[in-house]
Amino acid sequence: MTEFTPVSATVGGLMVGLSAGLLLLLRGRIAGISGIIGRALSQPLGDGGWRLAFLVGLPIGAAAVSLATGRLVVEVAASTPVLVAAGLLVGFGTQLGDGCTSGHGVCGIARGSKRAIAATLAFMTSGAITVFAVRHLLGASS
């Protein structure tokens, strides 16, 4: 169980949106993380290596917050086998469906893409059903 944190959620969201806006306006690129990783895997230094530069920035940014605030909570409820399965599904699914929470959920919906809206509805729905099944049908706590 976690606390509802509307202020930090909004501030963080504004930063994520600003990041996507900067990447689009400065570099003409979409901040879709799964697409960036997918293409960086096949061509790490393609297009001047901007993908690796962007991806390296993600843990640096999180580390900066961790240093500034003294802590960054990461609570993982899933067991190792479940995490492995989850990773495979996220990896495969985002490549098949051309995007994730950032590419579809933030960037795609921002330009009114029907594909992005449909994809976001699909992963929100399957995610909610999965959590419902794990927590309320199979009875896993936390």
Partner: peptide
Amino acid sequence: GATLFGVGWG
């Protein structure tokens, strides 16, 4: 793809 991703996400 999005549905599979959502399952893993959940």
